[in-house]
Simulated scan of single mutants.
Amino acid sequence: ALGGIAFSPAVAFAEAPKRKPIYDEAEHYSPLPSAPSPPAILPSQPIQDNSSSNEDEQPSWTPTPTDRLAVQVGRARLFLYSVAVAAENKVNQTVDSAFDLEQSFTRTIASLAPPRESGEKLMPGAIYVLVAAMAGSILTRNRNVVLRATMPFALGVGAGWTVLPITMRNVSDLAWKYEQKFPAVAESHVKLREGIQKTISFAKVHREVGVQYVDDKVTDVREALENWVKQGK
């Protein structure tokens, strides 16, 4: 083994030849030149104002007749628009007030009618009231003006309270509601009603007194007749 190693040819490693670079070395550039310093402004040189010169160069604008006409037309259109809007609002308010008045009138008439469960009917009762008023007019045909004016009304109201009590109560409440807007009328109505109530109460008292007086007289006459009959026997 040692002999083989000794007699084996030696391998010589030669250094590779140095190759010349294809590209030359980068050239070294000099640094950028420094910017020149601005020139110094001498006190003797005044600074020019570009804005004032530009304003002097721009001419002043004056409106043409077409421009003035366009402005007037715009104002007229705005005025007409405002008038149209005001008229439309007025019409809407009028229609709304008319509709509210109609609704109020309908509700008022409906509130005067008696309820269904009461069994009171307007049609025959209203006919009876008209007949009573006409009868009062016929009875006072040859009387004075006061009776001819008051008797039909009194008989009609009396018939209404007799055949249509609920409806007359509703009418009375509605009339009182409107009378409260006028204190003088309401006060006169209250006084008149109190006077009528007092008159009715006095009439009832006198009627009771009269009935009692008649009963007493009838009783006395009956007792006298009974005594006379007993004495005759």
Rank of each mutant, 00 (worst) to 15 (best):
K90G: 01
R116H: 09
G158K: 00
R143K: 08
D96S: 09
A6R: 10
Q231A: 15
V11S: 11
E88H: 01
S30P: 00
I109M: 14
P38S: 05
E179Q: 11
K198D: 10
Y81K: 12
A135W: 08
P39K: 06
S52N: 08
E117N: 06
I127W: 10
R222C: 08
F13K: 11
S104L: 08
R68D: 14
V129R: 04
S34N: 09
A154T: 12
E208S: 10
V71H: 07
R19Q: 15
L69N: 13
S111A: 05
Y81L: 15
M134R: 00
N170E: 03
S60C: 04
Q45A: 08
R141K: 11
Q48V: 13
T150E: 11
R19K: 13
E179P: 00
F13Q: 12
Q103R: 10
G74T: 04
N170P: 02
A175S: 11
I166Y: 01
K230N: 07
E55P: 00
L192Y: 07
P65A: 12
R68S: 13
L2D: 13
A186I: 00
L2M: 11
E27F: 02
N89H: 06
A1Q: 05
R107W: 09
V83C: 06
A35E: 13
Y29W: 08
V95A: 00
E179S: 14
S30A: 12
E223C: 01
H28K: 13
N227L: 12
A135S: 12
V214R: 05
W61T: 09
L225W: 05
K181N: 14
T162F: 13
E55V: 06
N144C: 02
L130M: 08
A70N: 03
E187N: 11
N227S: 14
V190C: 00
P152G: 03
A70V: 04
R77F: 04
V85F: 02
I196L: 05
E25Y: 06
K177V: 01
P31L: 02
M134N: 08
S104K: 09
A1L: 05
T66A: 15
G136M: 01
A12Y: 07
V214S: 07
T167N: 03
V190T: 11
G74I: 00
Q72F: 08
V211K: 07
K233P: 00
V221E: 06
